[in-house]
Nucleic acid binder design. Structure first.
Lengths: 343, 343
DNA sequence: ATCCAAAATGTGTGCGCTAACAATTTCCTC
DNA sequence: GAGGAAATTGTTAGCGCACACATTTTGGAT
């Protein structure tokens, strides 16, 4: 058990009575191999439990069939889903994916992550790091490996795949307006995130389109239920507010709790809408009306976009200078946390 | 830009006026290099932006410095955190990590994942797949790469790192008993998960130790809020029940909603306790008392255990036959969803 | 100066594979 | 059954690096 090396192609060749090149041809589905020979080779492969050595193959072909994913916080529901989608699609396309989590989003640690991934020889990188600063840092990274950003705003120099945050926010806001609310307040996400900025813009747009008053947005949210709760306490104190659009579901949860604790009923007294549609949102108290984005699909699309760029090199690299932006429309999921205002 | 190959060690050597071997020595921190030479080499490296070729290095050293993670559903909070912890620790130890998500937990797709990872040359594998079947399938995989299971029960033939589910469940159950409840009902997780089994066992133990009645456990839960809700409806109909221990937080959330919808107040009428302590649990209505497990730490420990096995080979492989089991104690987080029963 | 060990550097080889080309065989056509 | 194109197989040469060893240089001790 100790002494014998893992079998190599030459071993297979010997057993099958052919040259190692023929083995290579069989393994790579090359044409011009007689079926009988192919069978003998495959038999030998099985007999030895031979597995090709990836490093050697990479060295010879200069292709690693590996993609990298840089992720800021895989712990969040969205990023976790996107990662899943990416891996799923990668497998389908016969790529490996290696992940690099970054703890902070400063330029340095981002570039470090890129470096680490390049050291490993990834052919392309997907960035799940929806912060403005991240995109900024990455946009002009002097790298020869293609980058695609996923789930982060479209206003970027990077190729990207994202949900249309603005449209989603407009959907939510308009819905509340249609219900009869005079205006809608907005708890924004961290301003450093593109998603937060875009959702805020969408909210503002919808309000202005209808000529509704644009109240000062509530800032300081960090996506967590905690900050939602804190703002909820303030909102609860203002009797004029009838509708709040929260930049994500978790903050909406905190908001719900604060409101109820302060004695308000949702939706009778105040309507609340979230964003993301996490699996739990339906079971919040009350069931949360929210904007759904298909994270999985986002990841899959990102991967496909990346592969297209990395491409079978013979497919040709897309015209440089063109940074493709794929945007996916979100949808409103109506549940019970929002309703008509009382008059 | 097109024609020139990426620089290789020989290029660096030429520029620095040394042999490629000296470059190699510098890059690998080998002793016996004059400081002046080392500096010239490093300068040349910088000048060319040289990066060593991982494939070539792997081919020569037979080490990939890559670990694999097999994960069933990275979308869940726990697995996502563990993955994060793993990656974090891996980086520290200068390992890459590549992920392989499996969609279903049958033996085949599990072995496929292992194969895929081995094809890529991983030196070890961490399995985040806490199902009985998964462990069973993996326990006797005829593999030369070390496996460590994480976050899944300790009663396994696999090396593992896990939280002490049984202790956690006892903690929760005893707490409720101490509060004065005559007995505690239990909504179990999917029976195919070791965690679910162990939590059930812990719950049962605690009850028996105190001589409390052991009610029929509520089965059919699948970790989602939906099934928590469904069982909640049934529980709400039984006036005798005063305390429920749910196998995870999401199901507890569904339970809370169903109970409230049915007109019960939590905790005044019924106490509820969860398991996991997801970030949102604190903001459920009411704030959820739950058993906390440190997923990050779990991931980190798993990685360290794996590295120890993969080890600097000179460190020696631990005695075969010994499958180390690391268990981490959970803790009870007391919030407001559980209280004394009314008499 | 002389010699020797230690330090510093260079040379050759192989890791396991694929690409390019060379050699052989097969199979058809006339 | 001769000739030649097409199909099949083999041979050689790297890919870029680290390891084992050979060689040179250095820095004392004598």
């Amino acid at each position: 058990m100790e002494g014998d090396r893992a079998p190599v192609m030459a071993d297979v060749a010997r057993i099958a009575g052919v040259s190692h090149q023929t083995v290579s041809r069989v393994l790579n589905d090359r044409p011009n191999v007689r079926p009988a020979t192919r069978d003998r080779v495959l038999a030998a492969v099985r007999e030895l439990s031979y597995r090709p050595n990836a490093a050697a193959r990479t060295l010879a072909t200069r292709r690693t069939r590996t993609l990298g994913v840089i992720s800021f916080n895989t712990t969040l529901y969205g990023p976790a889903c996107m990662l899943y989608g990416v891996e799923q699609a990668a497998r389908q396309h016969e790529y490996f994916v290696t992940v690099a989590a970054v703890g902070t989003l400063d330029r340095r640690s981002l570039l470090d992550a890129v470096d680490r991934l390049r050291d490993q020889g990834v052919e392309g990188i997907i960035v799940i790091a929806p912060q403005t600063s991240a995109v900024g840092a990455l946009a002009n990274v002097p790298s020869d490996v293609p980058l695609v950003a996923v789930g982060c705003g479209t206003h970027t120099a990077l190729a990207s795949v994202a949900v249309d945050n603005e449209a989603g926010a407009e959907l939510a806001t308009s819905y509340l307006l249609d219900l009869g609310h005079h205006t809608v307040h907005h708890l924004v996400g961290p301003r450093s995130w593109l998603d937060a900025q875009e959702r805020e813009a969408g909210w503002r747009n919808a309000l202005e389109k209808r000529g509704a008053a644009v109240a000062e947005p509530l800032v300081g949210g960090d996506w967590t239920a905690r900050t939602g709760y804190e703002h909820g306490q303030r909102i609860a104190a203002d009797p004029d507010i009838t509708a709040v659009f929260c930049a994500n579901d978790h903050m909406a949860l905190g908001m719900l709790r604060a409101l109820q604790k302060a004695g308000h009923r949702v939706p009778q007294d105040i309507s609340v809408i979230g964003f993301d549609d996490t699996p739990e949102a339906e079971y919040f108290g009350p069931s949360l009306t929210t904007v759904r984005q298909d994270f999985d699909e986002l990841g899959r699309r990102a991967l496909r976009a990346l592969i297209e760029i990395v491409g079978d090199p013979d497919a040709g690299i897309p015209a440089a200078g063109e940074t493709p932006h794929i945007v996916i429309p979100p949808s409103l999921v109506v549940r019970t946390s929002a309703t008509r205002p009382r008059h």
